[in-house]
Write a protein that binds this DNA or RNA. Structure first.
Length: 258
DNA sequence: ATGACTTGCGCGGCAAGA
């Protein structure tokens, strides 16, 4: 079973790349973030014609998450813990796979910059809510994949220039501590389960030739419950997607579960 | 270098991203 995650930075701008990606890799499940459109503007017909079921949690202009699946899914939208949170950053679904059910979430964790505004405490509070919800999900003892754009650089090995990120919301000690608290519930960072290699990035800024200089960061992650981690066969970062014309600034990360 | 791109909104430049 192949599960991938990709921050598309506008699904309508990226539709051609998205359809090509589905055709090339045939993921069973693809989690999308930063749709930047409302549900009725999602290119549903095109994606369904490619053989996928679609569940969307969108909003106007910003954010927006979706799960694409070859098999029909049962869905839950929104992260519990704050009914007044209007930002569309979480959607979760259960996906049938042979004789089991796999639970998958598509996550767009708040950026948090600029630090010193209300955006950073919103990020930390959102992370607390995610930790609380993940704790509940882990009690189910089922294969669980929490996939998405976490806007967290877990360690200095996950960025080209750690000094440049020292005071950034993606890399501050408090941000990384909360990410570790999430992992310490019993989740496995899929990529780090298979390699200690440095220089593996999932985002390169559009500005200042970041891609050409390989000035990247690793912020897109798939976190696995023990029942999913036991099935992990391989992890791939689809870096070639950043070299296309009109790319997203993020690339997909893809895992295979036995 | 409070910059550099890219996107949405909507038709003129902001806000937001990371």
């Amino acid at each position: 079973m192949i599960i991938a995650t990709w921050n598309v930075n506008s699904v309508r701008q990226r539709l051609d790349h998205l359809l090509a990606y589905l055709k090339e890799h045939e993921p069973d499940v693809l989690c999308l973030q930063e749709l930047k459109c409302q549900d009725d503007a999602f290119p549903r017909l095109e994606v369904e014609s490619a053989g996928y079921n679609v569940v969307v949690h969108g909003q106007k202009t910003f954010n927006g998450v979706a799960i694409l699946s070859k098999r029909p899914v049962e869905v839950r939208a929104g992260l519990p813990g704050d009914e007044n949170d209007a930002q569309a950053r979480y959607i979760e679904a259960t996906v049938p796979d042979c004789d089991r059910i796999v639970r998958v979430a598509s996550i767009y964790l708040p950026n948090g910059n600029p630090v010193g505004t209300e955006k950073y405490p919103y990020k930390l509070t959102w992370m607390d809510r995610l930790i609380s919800h993940a704790r509940d999900l882990l009690k189910l003892e089922e294969p669980l994949v929490l996939a998405g754009d976490y806007n967290v650089i877990p360690s200095p090995h996950d960025c080209y220039d750690p000094a440049a990120w020292a005071n950034d919301a993606l890399f501050l000690p408090q941000t990384r501590e909360k990410f570790r608290s999430l992992l310490n519930l019993g989740l496995t960072d899929a990529l780090r389960a298979v390699t200690d290699e440095t220089g593996l990035y999932t985002f390169w800024d559009y500005q200042a030739g970041a891609w050409q200089r390989n000035n990247g960061i690793r912020i897109d992650h798939l976190l696995l419950s023990p029942q999913a981690a036991d099935k992990l066969k391989s992890v791939a970062v689809d870096k070639n997607m950043r070299a296309l014309e009109k790319p997203s600034d993020h690339v997909p990360v893809r895992i295979e579960l036995a």
